[in-house]
Design a protein around this nucleic acid. Structure first.
Length: 419
RNA sequence: GUGAGUGUAGCUCAAUGGCAGAGCACUGGUCUGUGGCUCCAGUGGUUGAGGGUUCGAUUCCCUUCAUUCACCCCA
């Protein structure tokens, strides 16, 4: 029979990594909780139009990366490629059951994009994200950025760079876009092929081209933050002032842009040097127009998402270490097993991580298994011990052994191991 | 979608146009009811798959699949 493997870009998370993964998710939960965010879980499958309308018809995600198919009843459905659209949809659908504005929500779960896998990029990947819906005040931007910064500090990553920029709004972005196009118009012949394509589709994207030849040209390109309307300009200044007050280090990145169409005003990224080409660990920004675009009342909002797999590459191996086996029970013979198995059950109910060997295996073999499982203690009993109503408790590290009477075995073991 | 690299034992990797190897892991012995360490022995491969050149291909050529990295894009 032919072996069946996981699909390209879909990964199993095995013991060892799973514990770190859970630790990361739990730490996120606790941190977001402290900042006043509530959890939300939305479906993985949504109507396709939710994403075409929110992310943007002409983005790569919508054009060629979504897992879209026709449901049995003929509906066009899509595996979510990101989380914000679903959260906003759920907000609108249940807004009368939501607490007063602003609503602060966080989520975590799998996202799907059909891309060619590479370092830090999978087809099924996982994001943790947070959204603040219903307040245009820059105080919310500051709060969200403080949450982001603190979370990274809490998981032991303090060498990341917070880059911020302002992309403007429907008032000031179109004129800026024209200024930018004017700037690049004379330089089209020296820009790369991709940038020539970007010139028409999304000229802002030229600003973060990776080619050196383009980079030298873009150095002098006009910055969006220098062409903001009064409202956006004040907003951006207040955000920066707030970060300074909280002593949150950041870098103004005049050419930082966002890939999804719905972003406005504040845009930001957390980047690292240790992840290969995919250097963004978290990213987000304001999306004041999205709620309205999805059929709701005009409602400003801001949010971000972090890539779990990318975080996993960065956090120390020691975080969330798998718990060690505290006790391995060695029964020598069937009658010993019959006596010891109920004891194992009792110990497990007392939350002692414990295991039992095969009663028909020789002592040597069972000891070897205990050693391989990294057991801290081993409890040994054969016919002799059972007849004498006792068992041997061995400390695998110190090699010291004590005899324990069966009558009070459970308490004595717990005292020895946990005491 | 585009480009480059890599596919040999469970894992990490050698080698050669002429019998396919090592280390680790595994099994057993050394050590009959006491693990790790030592020493000894053993199991394990259609060299990713298919085709071509050749007396002979794991090696050279073509195709294909898988995988990695990069571009694109993005968390």
């Amino acid at each position: 029979m032919e072996k069946i493997n996981a699909l390209k870009g879909f990964k199993d998370l095995l013991p060892g990594d799973s514990e770190r993964w859970d630790w990361l998710a739990l730490t996120a939960r606790r941190t977001f909780d402290a900042f006043g965010f509530s959890p939300i879980h939305t479906p993985i499958l949504e109507r396709t139009t939710l994403f075409t309308r929110s992310i943007g018809e002409t983005t790569d995600i919508v054009e060629k990366e979504m897992y879209t198919f026709e449901d049995w009843d003929g509906k066009q459905v899509t595996l979510r490629p990101e989380g914000t659209a679903s959260v906003v949809r759920a907000f609108l659908e249940h807004r009368h059951q939501m607490p007063v504005l602003p609503v602060k929500l966080y989520y975590q779960g799998p996202m799907f994009r059909h891309e060619r896998p590479q370092a830090g990029r999978l087809r099924q990947f996982h994001q943790v994200g947070a959204e603040i819906i219903g307040d245009i005040d820059p105080k919310q931007d500051i709060e969200l950025l403080s949450l982001l910064t603190y979370f990274f500090k809490r998981i032991g990553l303090d060498n990341l760079t917070l880059e911020i920029n302002s992309l403007g709004c429907p008032v000031c972005r179109p004129p800026y876009r024209e200024i930018l196009q004017d700037f690049f118009k004379k330089k089209l012949t020296t820009l790369c092929e991709d940038c020539n394509r970007r010139f028409h589709k999304n000229p802002l994207r030229i600003l973060d081209c990776k080619k050196e030849s383009c980079k030298t040209i873009t150095t002098d390109a006009p910055a969006s933050a220098k062409h903001l309307c009064t409202e956006c300009d004040e907003h951006f200044k207040t955000v920066q002032q707030g970060l300074k007050t909280l002593k949150i280090p950041y870098q103004y990145s005049k050419h930082l842009v966002r890939g999804l169409d719905y972003y406005t005003k504040t845009a930001f990224e957390m980047t690292t040097q240790n992840l290969g080409a995919q250097n963004a660990v978290a990213a987000g920004g304001r999306y004041d127009g999205l709620v309205e675009a999805l059929g709701g009342p005009a409602t400003p909002a801001i949010g971000f998402a972090m890539g779990m797999e990318r975080l996993m590459h960065l956090i120390p191996e020691t975080k969330g270490m798998p718990s060690t086996l505290q006790l391995f029970i060695v029964p020598l013979g069937e009658s010993a097993y019959q006596t010891l198995f109920p004891i194992l059950y009792s110990l497990r109910k007392k939350k002692l991580r414990s295991e039992i060997g095969y009663s028909d295996s020789p002592l040597k073999k069972q000891m070897k298994q205990a050693d391989r499982l990294n057991a801290e203690y081993v409890l040994i009993a054969g016919d002799e011990e059972i007849a004498a109503k006792k068992a041997i408790l061995r400390n695998m590290k110190t090699k010291s052994q004590t005899e324990i009477g069966l009558s009070n075995l459970i308490n004595e073991i717990l005292a020895e191991i946990e005491g």
